[in-house]
Design a protein around this nucleic acid. Structure first.
Lengths: 349, 349
DNA sequence: ATAGTAAATGCGAACGTTCGCATAAGTTAA
DNA sequence: TTAACTTATGCGAACGTTCGCATTTACTAT
């Protein structure tokens, strides 16, 4: 490990003071072209790279964004994590920022972790994701007036910059898709009461149905945790409804429930896709491998990560958030056999 | 954002010099109990947190480990990423280290990225993963004598600290599993020639077969890229072999090939699990959702990440790598219906 | 008592920048 | 020619630590 090349060495070689070199490098000052050229040559020759640490000590900014996230359960990978991270730090790197990852802990200790990173000056801002109703971090960062941006929103009194997927719109798109396939009795596997995300999505469903002039039967809205088993059981319930209100299309709020639904449909001797159309949400990588492949709503995650970073850094550099402060992005419906019943031609992939 | 509490403020409150406070905090010196108590009280009262930046400027260490990885293809999530990252930074955090993530780029630019992080003093070491034969980073870091540790190994002249999954042993375990189920004709879907990882795994297969006194028929070793289509086609080929050498068990080197194999088995009117046993490698989250659920080899990824970090930090703090320098960890065989043919009782999950 | 040693604390310097003001040189207007 | 500006560069200080050595104080042994 060779020892560091410093400003002073560059300055000596270019016959100027080291402070001048600093200014030229940071484009803080206009200088005679000859001197400037000498400086850049010296930088080149010596292979000078500014010390990140010294720079950030002096300027009191770490050029680092902190991020932690809830680990996915061991039996179930988070399919968007990779893309989300890559989108964030590739966006960040372009502006000289990096992403610092730290462990996700239980509430009390998590706040300490945030506090430590803030107080030690290791990060300039945070990104939060999959935020919760009772997420203490939002409150905490807000109180501290520490910059952050979130993937996901919260209703209530907090105002903070976020980007979120417009779940309501997504469900509406899915419902319209089923409507366009001439389904009339369309049910939804929704989340328990008092879930903001869930309620918002239900609105999309109701709105699509109303626009099509269909009255939503109360039994069509089934609620439960977003698990396979719940999807399975709720679907059994739906399929045992009286003929005239029995759904021919089922919209699930995540893929896992949709998988459960398809299993239940099979269990009743019916064919998912052919007899009952099913759509999921998230477009997990599993979706395309299922039989039949699952129609699902995909989040434009790359875009989300990029916007999040760009706006956060914009704020750090300019002191104000660019518009829009709160942003909703439409998910994209990936149509497969589980809703159309039509086997895709060509390659399976 | 309140302004920072510094050593000097703590010192003033405790009526000692600020350098003494520094020493007490870093446990560099013994001091009178009264003074020590005064200092800790002052630290507590003022809520002092050392400035990471100042500390690392002075001590010339960033307490940061850099990591980048090849993004997974958009249609296929990396199932172990989350766990791997979490294991690394939770291990790192315990010793005051953090993980800095940066974008993965093409060869030439990637080296520049590494160089920049090194020269700017942003990181003290790197973790590498899924390293390649012609990976220029290994060479580069070796030349620079910059500390790093890898998940995965390389044969050749390079010696560096790594941890890897013992693929050969894994395949051997899988083969023994099939042998214990009375299979004799066992084929393997392997990787193209000249793949170190692939060759190593084939050795495990051959060794298990030999121990069981079975001669490996040349046709049983089929090679190709690890894709669904390749798995499908190679399996068709295997199933068209003469009765006496037709395999009843197929070991695939990854889950995707195994999925292709199961599809081919079905295509021939046979039942995977019942008629032909199949095993995969990686235990992707998909594996349990398949029909039938896929027996597969799981990498103990949490353990790997932890060991990697612990050893890297050990090196950074003590200047020498702990033993063993190179470490192989056995994968774990997760047995499901695709090999046993026995439908699991109880919950699907 | 007095030198000798050990323990406790202080002090100056350094890590490599950026920042703002001071100064020197060059240019224009009276 | 000289005052009044502009422009280019230099200089000292500061960011908040850690490090090694110097100093003070207290204690033991002669």
């Amino acid at each position: 490990m060779k020892s560091r090349v410093t400003l002073k060495q560059v300055a000596a070689r270019a016959s100027v003071s080291y402070q001048t070199v600093s200014k030229v490098i940071n484009q803080k000052v206009r200088i005679s072209p000859e001197a400037e050229q000498r400086i850049w040559e010296a930088v080149e020759d010596l292979g000078y790279t500014p010390s990140y640490t010294a720079r950030s000590l002096r300027s009191q900014r770490s050029q680092t964004i902190g991020y932690t996230w809830q680990p996915s359960p061991p039996d179930q990978a988070n399919p968007i994590l990779d893309l989300f991270l890559q989108s964030m730090f590739s966006s960040a790197e372009k502006k000289g920022y990096y992403l610092l990852c730290f462990p996700y802990l239980e509430q009390e200790k998590l706040l300490d972790a945030y506090r430590l990173l803030i107080d030690s000056g290791r990060v300039d801002a945070f990104v939060l994701s999959s935020i919760d109703y009772d997420d203490p971090c939002i409150q905490f960062l807000n109180d501290q007036k520490f910059p952050f941006a979130a993937f996901g929103r919260l209703d209530g009194n907090f105002h903070f910059p976020y980007i979120d997927v417009d779940g309501g719109l997504g469900i509406k798109i899915a419902a319209n898709h089923l409507l366009s396939l001439s389904h009339r009795n369309i049910a939804i596997l929704a989340w328990p009461h008092n879930s903001r995300v869930g309620d918002n999505r239900i609105e999309g469903y109701v709105s699509a149905m109303q626009s099509a002039g269909i009255e939503v039967h109360p039994e069509w809205v089934q609620r439960g945790e977003g698990t396979y088993n719940v999807g399975f059981n709720l679907t059994l319930k739906l399929l045992s409804l009286a003929e005239n209100i029995r759904p021919t299309g089922i919209i699930a709020m995540n893929d896992l429930m949709a998988i459960g639904a398809m299993a239940a449909i099979r269990h009743c001797g019916l064919m998912p896709g052919k007899d009952i159309a099913v759509t999921g949400f998230d477009d997990t990588p599993t979706a395309r491998f299922l039989r039949p492949p699952l129609t699902s709503l995909r989040q434009p995650i790359w875009e989300i990560g990029q916007h999040l970073m760009d706006r956060l850094i914009d704020y750090l550099e300019n002191g104000r958030y660019p518009e829009p402060f709160e942003e909703l992005i439409a998910p994209q419906l990936i149509i497969r056999e589980s809703s159309t019943g039509i086997e895709a031609k060509g390659e399976l992939f």
